[in-house]
Amino acid sequence: MSNKRGIFVSCSDANHFCDKNQYKEATFWEKVKLNIHLLYCAACRKYSAKNTKLTKLVKDPKVISINEYEKNAMKERLKQKISENK
């Protein structure tokens, strides 16, 4: 990461700030620099959007799993089908 004090940062720095922002670790100035960079860099906007989507999916996965009874019934059906095809 560069040590420049300007408000324009490289894509590498912007991605780093984006990752820090995702975990609520970015400073105010890192957020400012990231947002300025996102104004003119389509690739980093895309990276940031994917990062946001990933964070939302991890926080609320909405995964529905089957109960143990259904799982065992499915295993038995699979075993039967496999034995029928041998």
Rank of each mutant, 00 (worst) to 15 (best):
4 K>N: 06
26 A>T: 02
28 F>R: 02
46 K>Q: 10
30 E>A: 08
45 R>N: 11
67 N>V: 03
53 K>I: 11
47 Y>D: 00
2 S>Q: 05
65 S>G: 06
46 K>S: 12
16 H>I: 01
7 I>D: 06
19 D>E: 11
47 Y>Q: 00
2 S>C: 02
29 W>R: 04
22 Q>C: 15
67 N>S: 06
34 L>R: 01
77 R>W: 11
29 W>Q: 06
2 S>A: 01
63 V>R: 04
80 Q>Y: 13
56 K>C: 12
15 N>Y: 02
40 Y>I: 02
44 C>H: 03
84 E>G: 07
37 H>N: 03
64 I>K: 07
58 V>T: 07
5 R>D: 04
47 Y>N: 00
10 S>D: 11
59 K>M: 10
49 A>F: 15
73 A>H: 14
31 K>L: 13
85 N>Y: 15
42 A>M: 03
56 K>P: 08
64 I>V: 10
19 D>G: 12
39 L>K: 13
55 T>C: 14
10 S>H: 10
59 K>W: 09
34 L>T: 08
76 E>G: 08
4 K>R: 02
48 S>H: 09
19 D>S: 02
65 S>H: 02
54 L>I: 03
80 Q>F: 12
9 V>I: 03
41 C>F: 05
42 A>R: 00
39 L>D: 03
69 Y>E: 13
5 R>H: 01
53 K>D: 03
58 V>G: 01
83 S>Q: 00
25 E>S: 01
63 V>E: 15
8 F>G: 07
7 I>S: 06
28 F>C: 06
30 E>L: 07
20 K>A: 12
10 S>R: 06
72 N>Q: 15
35 N>G: 09
9 V>R: 01
81 K>Q: 07
13 D>R: 01
47 Y>S: 00
11 C>L: 04
48 S>I: 00
52 T>P: 02
16 H>Y: 01
41 C>K: 00
48 S>C: 13
23 Y>T: 05
39 L>Y: 04
34 L>P: 11
30 E>Q: 15
15 N>M: 13
38 L>Y: 05
22 Q>L: 15
35 N>A: 03
74 M>S: 08
36 I>S: 10
79 K>C: 14
51 N>F: 10
55 T>G: 13
74 M>W: 10
61 P>N: 09
35 N>H: 10
68 E>Y: 01
18 C>N: 05
65 S>T: 03
6 G>F: 05
70 E>I: 07
62 K>Y: 05
32 V>P: 04
53 K>F: 12
26 A>D: 04
8 F>R: 10
72 N>W: 15
36 I>W: 09
5 R>M: 04
39 L>V: 12
84 E>A: 08
59 K>G: 07
34 L>I: 12
30 E>D: 10
24 K>C: 03
13 D>M: 09
39 L>H: 08
57 L>W: 02
11 C>P: 03
81 K>D: 13
67 N>W: 12
53 K>V: 08
20 K>C: 14
37 H>F: 12
6 G>Q: 02
43 A>P: 04
52 T>S: 09
47 Y>K: 00
36 I>V: 12
28 F>D: 05
25 E>P: 05
14 A>G: 09
59 K>I: 06
42 A>N: 04
85 N>I: 11
68 E>I: 06
84 E>H: 13
43 A>D: 10
76 E>H: 14
